[in-house]
Simulated scan of single mutants.
Amino acid sequence: MSHTAHIPSHRKPRRSASKLAVRAGVAGGVLSTLAMAGTASATPSAEPVTETTLEMPVLDADLASEVSSAVATAAENTRLAAVEGELTAQEESARTGAAAEAKKAKEDAQQKADAEKKTQEEAARKAEAERANRSTARASLSTKSAGSDGSSAGTKATSNQGTGAYVAAPATGSAAAVVNFARAQVGKAYVSGGTGPSSYDCSGLVQAAYRQAGISLPRVSSAQSSMGTSVSLSSLQPGDILYWGSRSSSYHVAIYTGGGKFIGAQNPSKGVVEATMNYDKPTGAVRIL
């Protein structure tokens, strides 16, 4: 081992190349600065250097607030537009639904009206057929009921059993006045709304006949059939009012004259006739006297 091994060295440590370069650059910069300063002082007649200053735009301190407000406004407008679009779609859907419901309701009403019209027409056809059948039967009866001496059906008629000539049983009291007046009108014309003395309709004849007994009856057949007391067809008495149809809603009336016969203003083709019950059987009867 060397006898100098433990003696510390007095040499300065080497500086690294990078540090030396930095120091050289700094020194060079200082020297350049000094040279430029000397040159400037040596040439006093040179024109002074004019420095140009660029003005930078000044930013408003409230710009951020305005931008934030604009963004918020745009967002709100977008939201309102979306809401308006949704409301428009809902309104259009509601209008479409309402139009469909209205169309369906109109179709249902039209179908109902058509059905009611068809029912009414069918009822009218049936009523017309019934009237035609009654007219045909009455025409046949009128021919059969005429006597061989050419007298009217009011004085001689065929009985219900068809056993030969039949003379009507006499009525008494007020019933006689009603029956006798009605029989005196046989052969006169039928005119709708007629109340005498030259023409009658069915209720006009009944009203005029009962007036002879001092009794005032309503003008129309439906009201006349609602008067008095209802009686069965098997217990009729002269002067009873016969009706066709339902009571209080009858469409035809006549006067029972006894012996299974009645007198009524039948229709324009027959006028006032006396006929048997089997010619046109009534629905029911009421008793006024």
Rank of each mutant, 00 (worst) to 15 (best):
E121C: 07
A127K: 12
S9M: 02
R138H: 11
A124H: 07
S234Q: 05
S18R: 14
V178S: 11
H3D: 15
G154K: 15
A109H: 09
N77S: 14
S18Q: 08
R134V: 07
G259W: 06
M227T: 10
N77R: 11
M56D: 00
D280A: 14
S174T: 08
P218Y: 13
G38A: 15
D108Y: 04
M227E: 15
S159E: 00
P197R: 05
G228Y: 09
L87H: 08
L217D: 14
S152V: 00
A168E: 11
S151I: 01
V71L: 15
G239D: 05
A132Y: 09
S248A: 07
V206C: 12
V286R: 06
Q111E: 14
A64R: 14
D108T: 08
I241E: 09
A61Q: 11
R79D: 13
Y190W: 14
S232Y: 03
V71E: 15
M36Q: 08
A99K: 08
V58F: 04
M277L: 12
D108G: 06
K103F: 01
T53S: 13
E76F: 07
T276R: 05
S2L: 15
V167D: 14
H10N: 12
R219W: 08
Y190R: 11
A64G: 15
S16K: 06
Q120I: 06
E121H: 10
E101N: 04
S69C: 01
L59G: 06
T172H: 15
D240P: 06
G204R: 12
P44F: 04
V273H: 03
L54I: 07
M277I: 03
T195I: 13
G28M: 13
A265K: 04
A137C: 00
S226Y: 06
P8F: 00
A74N: 15
A40Q: 04
V22P: 00
G147T: 05
K261G: 03
S225L: 05
S135Q: 06
R287D: 11
A157L: 14
A46W: 00
G204A: 10
G187N: 01
G164T: 07
Q110R: 14
A254R: 01
S152N: 07
S249N: 09
E76D: 13
A175S: 12
G164L: 06
R131S: 07
D201Q: 11
V71K: 13
G214M: 09
S41D: 08
T4I: 11
N267G: 10
T257K: 02
A82M: 04
K281Y: 15
H252N: 04
L242N: 00
P268Q: 02
T119H: 07
A37I: 02
Q224T: 03
A177G: 06
P218E: 13
Q212R: 15
E91Q: 10
